[in-house]
């Protein structure tokens, strides 16, 4: 469903991604691991069209989205949960969950469904997104992307800065996504979280994919973990 083929992405003169390729199949949860600053966010931004690659190709359901405008890419069925959540301070929780809503044939994710999944948000519908706790903001950032009913959700370090209880909440969400057949490309620094939910794992270092394996293999591969993840 998503094919990233040999992309090179740079910010001005600084080259970040180099010849990076990966693939996500329908309904799959794919983890991306890597240390700080290796280019994980840049990869997400490249896919979303926010920082288009200089060369290489990105295909989504067969369509070339390499240099498409971000809103077009989103409307093809890609959802984006950015690093740091970036909720809209001038929008209420309710507006977050309505403004980007789009129905599709199957449409499992509706406003009502999001509130059922995150009762905390349901109790704060008229509050500004900025007034929520970090965990609630993360749920909101996921919720506003999901109501557009994407077939692939990009999540950039969703557990960053969350309390353990909230990390478990988030795990529940990823589980629900899997059950509904929504694919997820999950960038993470928390190894345990990825090992628990991912079907496959890519490891990024210096803007390249340096390792590709199953979570179970990574769990026991202390050499790779030490070399690329510092654990």
């Amino acid at each position: 469903m998503l094919k990233v083929e040999n992309i090179y992405t740079n910010y001005g003169s600084s080259q970040v991604l180099q010849d990076l390729s990966l693939e996500v199949k329908p309904g799959e949860i794919v983890g991306i691991l890597g240390r700080n600053g290796v280019g994980k966010t840049t990869l997400m931004r490249s896919i979303m069209g926010l920082t288009p690659p200089r060369s290489g190709r990105i295909l989504f359901d067969g369509a070339d989205i390499t240099r498409m405008a971000p809103h077009r890419i989103a409307r093809l069925g890609l959802g984006y949960v950015p690093q740091g959540r970036r909720v809209f301070p001038s929008l209420s929780v309710r507006e977050h969950l309505q403004v980007t809503a789009r129905e599709r044939e199957a449409s499992p994710w509706t406003f009502a469904k999001m509130i059922e999944l995150f009762p905390n948000l349901g109790q704060r519908l008229d509050q500004s997104g900025a007034k929520l706790s970090g965990g609630e903001q993360q749920m909101l950032a996921a919720g506003r992307a999901l109501v557009a009913n994407p077939t692939l959700l990009l999540m950039d370090e969703p557990t960053e800065g969350l309390a353990p209880l909230m990390v478990r909440e988030l795990g529940r969400l990823v589980g629900a996504l899997k059950d509904s057949g929504t694919a997820v490309l999950l960038v993470e620094q928390q190894l345990a979280f990825v090992l628990k939910y991912a079907d496959r794992v890519y490891i990024v270092a210096k803007g390249q994919i340096v390792h590709h394996c199953l979570p179970a293999e990574l769990a026991t591969d202390s050499d790779v973990k030490a070399r690329y993840l510092g654990v």
């Binding site: 069209g49 926010l50 405008a69 971000p70 890419i73 989103a74 959802g79 809209f88 929008l91």
Partner: peptide
């Protein structure tokens, strides 16, 4: 939403 964060608004469709 666009005034708050035009980039993310675009990425959400």
């Amino acid at each position: 939403a666009g005034v708050d964060d035009a980039e993310i608004a675009g990425a959400l469709g």
